[in-house]
């Protein structure tokens, strides 16, 4: 079996350098690679381009790397939960590329699937389409979008095995499987790391071929961004 297991997040991020492009799985704070983000903060690497659906909140998730000014550019679909982000963007300290969410997902998937570009109807006629090729298919306009390139992809799964196979839980799956496909080096952190053979091959969401390094994360906070409940009867 190909050796993929590393000790911890610090070992998992070895090779990360200034000005690299990194993907981060997660939707809001759900399914984010908490351990890897903290290790990148502690490493101090700078001028990163980060591809992530959201940018965390002020003091958690990618918000940690905004606090330390390690991010040069964010590529996201929605960044509305983060005051520091807005401040850095308006002051010009942070470059921002806003991408429709489905296009963001597909640009990750395409990157991992050997598709250099694709046409999508999303964004036609809007600011997003500026400078992009337009083609008509079946009587409808579409714009050309390119696959991403990423030096590292950091993803978070519920369970993983030593072969790098991953299983996600609930809506914490989101962008994680797509980014896992896209990274030149994909780092998976999991809540539970099991010996090969422990996971049912029928139930694998991300096959191990997409994962280069895997480790069992520690101290998951799994913060809830917007707690909504019904009262007990």
């Amino acid at each position: 079996m190909i050796r993929k297991v590393v000790k911890d997040a610090k070992e998992a991020i070895v090779g990360i350098e200034n000005a690299m492009t990194c993907m981060f799985g997660g939707f809001g704070l759900s399914g984010i690679p908490e351990n890897s983000i903290q290790a990148i903060r502690d490493n101090g690497v700078k001028n990163l381009t980060c591809i992530s659906n959201n940018a965390g909140v002020d003091d958690f998730g990618l918000g940690l790397l905004l606090q330390t000014r390690q991010i040069k550019k964010m590529i996201s679909s929605y960044v509305g939960e983060n005051d520091l982000f807005e401040k850095l963007m308006l002051s010009g300290e942070l470059e921002v590329e806003l991408v429709p969410q489905g296009t963001l997902a597909e640009r990750c998937r395409a990157a991992g699937a050997g598709i250099p570009a694709f046409f999508t109807p999303a964004g036609y006629g809007t600011e997003v389409a500026e400078g992009k090729e337009v083609r008509w298919f079946n009587g409808k306009p579409h714009i050309l979008e390119n696959a991403f390139e990423a030096d590292f992809a950091f993803v978070k799964a519920w369970k993983g095995d030593e072969a790098g196979n991953l299983i996600f839980k609930g809506t914490a799956r989101n962008f994680n499987p797509l980014m896992a496909m896209a990274g030149k080096i994909t780092v998976a952190e999991v809540e539970e790391l099991l010996p090969a053979g422990s996971l049912d091959p029928n139930q694998i969401h991300t096959p191990g071929i997409f994962v280069q390094r895997i480790f069992e994360g520690v101290n998951y906070e799994k913060r809830i961004e917007n707690r909504t409940v019904r009262p007990k009867a």
Binding site: F27, G170, E225
Partner: peptide, 21 residues
């Protein structure tokens, strides 16, 4: 489904508004 009963909310189960569901 609807919002969870208080005490059963799950950080791995949210909607697009990041609300627990």
């Amino acid at each position: 489904g609807p919002f969870p009963i208080e005490g059963t909310e799950d950080p791995d189960l949210i909607n697009a508004g990041k609300q627990t569901i």
